[in-house]
Design a protein around this nucleic acid. Structure first.
Length: 270
DNA sequence: CCCTGAACCTGACCGC
DNA sequence: TGCGGTCAGGTTCAGG
């Protein structure tokens, strides 16, 4: 479910309801996520989140004692619920506020994670090596080209490497490469600076539009306010293997790159 | 340093 | 109805 637009949609949906509210309780029903849920969450009661940020696909809940990092993995979501609402099978953590609302972390596959970063302890190791944010206005249009000079792997895997550029997931990698007219299997180093500039623009466009639309709806995505996103109708290639290309009407093809399904148009993407 | 494949886990779906 | 196989939005880690 969550790619960067879904994470950003969650941030926007959740922030107004949790910022400045006093935390009264944290219920951890299941500690076994990708990494164990930190014991330090026990220090949250009495605190208030002063802001909610995002870096790559990590949400950052800031308070004076430190920062709670939340990653949604493949199947995670955050919902605002009544504090007494029945948790259900995969509702692993609740952060309960003084107005009887809870921020509920739900994650069937448990590939997500939570981390606690005490105030003043610098950057979390998981965030330290991340590449630039794709939606940062200051992103250098030649960044991808420069970073690719010694890389032989397929360009799709290259742009999905979070050390190269943060937050480009499988759906949007496919979509951006289609928009830029680049074959996803092309070796990174064989692509010109001009085409990388076009690809950079495509990544920003596709992510920006998806954020504006409130995230992609695949199966069950709901924003923090419980409203579904509507972007899935605009996907050109993802999930459309064998169907006609929206540009040339040829048949879209599917291949696997780095264990991920990849859809592209063999005539529009070279 | 670069690259590949395994691993983590549950649920949905498909063919028999 | 059940059973086995395949697939799914992500990321880290071990090993070549």
């Amino acid at each position: 479910m969550p790619e960067l637009p879904e994470v950003e949609t969650t941030r926007r949906g959740v922030a107004p309801h949790v910022v400045d509210r006093q935390i009264v309780r944290v219920d951890v029903r299941e500690r076994r996520l990708r990494w164990p849920v930190p014991e330090a969450l026990a220090e949250l009661p009495g605190q208030r989140f002063c802001s909610v940020g995002r870096r790559s696909k990590y949400l950052k809940f800031h308070c004076t004692a430190g920062t709670l990092l939340v990653h949604l993995g493949m199947s995670g979501s955050l919902r605002l619920v009544a504090a007494d609402a029945a948790p259900g099978k995969h509702a692993h953590v609740d952060i309960v506020f003084d107005n009887a609302i809870a921020l509920r972390y739900i994650d069937p596959r448990r590939f997500g994670s939570m981390h606690w970063l005490p105030a003043g302890s610098g950057e979390h190791p998981l965030l330290a090596g991340l590449g630039p944010e794709p939606l940062d206005e200051a992103l250098d249009p030649d960044h991808l080209h420069r970073a690719s000079r010694r890389r032989r792997l397929a360009v799709k895997q290259f742009i999905m490497d979070s050390r190269v550029i943060a937050g480009v997931g499988n759906i949007y990698a496919c979509e951006a490469l289609f928009l830029a007219g680049i074959h996803p299997g092309r070796p990174s180093r064989t692509i010109s600076a001009k085409r990388y500039r076009r690809l950079t623009e495509a990544v920003r466009d596709v992510l920006g539009q998806a954020v504006a639309a409130g995230g992609t709806t695949l199966r069950d995505f709901l924003g923090g306010d419980g409203r579904p996103g509507y972007f899935s109708q605009q996907l050109h290639v993802y999930g459309r293997g064998g169907e006609p290309c929206t540009k040339c009407s040829g048949s879209l093809r599917e291949l696997r790159l780095g264990q991920r399904s990849t859809v592209f148009c063999p005539s529009c993407q070279t």
